[in-house]
């Protein structure tokens, strides 16, 4: 294919996305609305859930297994930062993974650009994630006003959107890959569940890597996890009030963009075969 016709194809693609932007918005709206429908507390669960799970983690890792929090300034906030990002990562990728199969009835009957579904599911989780960030704000305010914990709020906090954007790109890429795989092999759903558990322990959510005293290989393994870089960047901005480690920035950005590239390519190549399998 020559470049001219490639260009035409890409612009046709973008035009199509523009035409179906309403669908994207409607699905995001639907997912957010339906998530807590029929629950008594409704949208409050967006705040309550991270708060309660963080409380459990604080009790377990700050109390019972008390060693892991040594040398961490304001352990609950440290935990909450990691957990919020981790939760967004797993929830959004899991929902994106199931999105194509769940929309089978529509995809089989009406033409819609199929990538709308994984992307919309990542975005709707992003909305709830953004709302739940206010828990972090409230918690930090509480600690600053009522305790004398040294939380350093510096202008760097304004940069905290950068790791979040990188995370969003990462989730979209992985979501596209998983949703494609899941059409052909349903096993992925169960495998990914285990993988998410691994990620939970491989991301320093409740511990500090240098406090582990682990050998070099384990440390390298942990560093290879892009979520580690993203969480570290986020904590640098929000909790420690300093510039992030640029190695983290480059590694996470390159990794996330690569995932987005691979995801788009895999999805694009396989999307016409979806209908034969769902």
């Amino acid at each position: 294919m020559n470049t001219a016709s490639k260009k035409i194809k890409i612009s046709a693609y973008l035009q199509n996305l523009w035409k179906y932007r309403f669908l994207l918005v409607e699905i995001v709206r639907k997912n957010v609305k339906l998530q807590y429908r029929n629950s008594v507390l409704g949208i409050f669960w967006t705040f309550l859930q991270p708060l309660l799970t963080t409380l459990v983690l604080v009790l377990v890792f700050g109390g019972i297994f008390g060693k892991s929090n040594e040398g961490i300034v304001c352990y609950p906030i440290y935990l909450l930062c990691g957990r919020l990002l981790y939760e967004f990562f797993t929830q959004s990728t899991k929902r994106a993974m199931r999105s194509i199969r769940n929309s089978a009835s529509v995809i089989k009957k009406v033409y819609v650009p199929k990538y709308i579904y994984p992307i919309a599911n990542v975005l709707s989780n992003f909305v709830t994630f953004a709302i739940s960030l206010s828990v972090l704000v409230v918690m930090m305010a509480y600690y600053m006003i009522f305790t004398d914990v040294a939380i350093r709020i510096t202008p760097y906090i304004l940069l905290s959107f950068v790791p979040i954007i990188i995370l969003l790109v990462l989730c979209t890429g992985i979501g596209l890959i998983l949703s494609t795989l899941n059409v052909f092999f349903k096993d992925i759903e169960y495998l990914y569940e285990v993988f998410c558990m691994l990620i939970f322990y491989a991301t320093p959510i409740f511990y500090k890597v240098d406090a582990l005293g682990a050998n070099k290989f384990v440390q390298m393994g942990l560093m290879a996890n892009p979520l580690y870089s993203i969480v570290s960047m986020f904590r640098s901005c929000v909790l420690f009030g300093e510039m992030w480690n640029w190695n983290h920035f480059f590694y996470a950005s390159v990794f996330s963009l690569a995932m987005l590239g691979i995801g788009s390519l895999v999805f694009y190549k396989k999307q016409d075969k979806f209908i034969l399998h769902i």
């Binding site: 669908l23 609305k33 339906l34 009406v110």
Partner: peptide, 18 residues
């Protein structure tokens, strides 16, 4: 989803704005 909400969703599926 309720009927009225589905009207907008179905419309969007066909490519129409709210």
């Amino acid at each position: 989803y309720s009927g009225s909400e589905n009207i907008y969703l179905y419309g969007a599926t066909m490519g129409y704005s709210r």
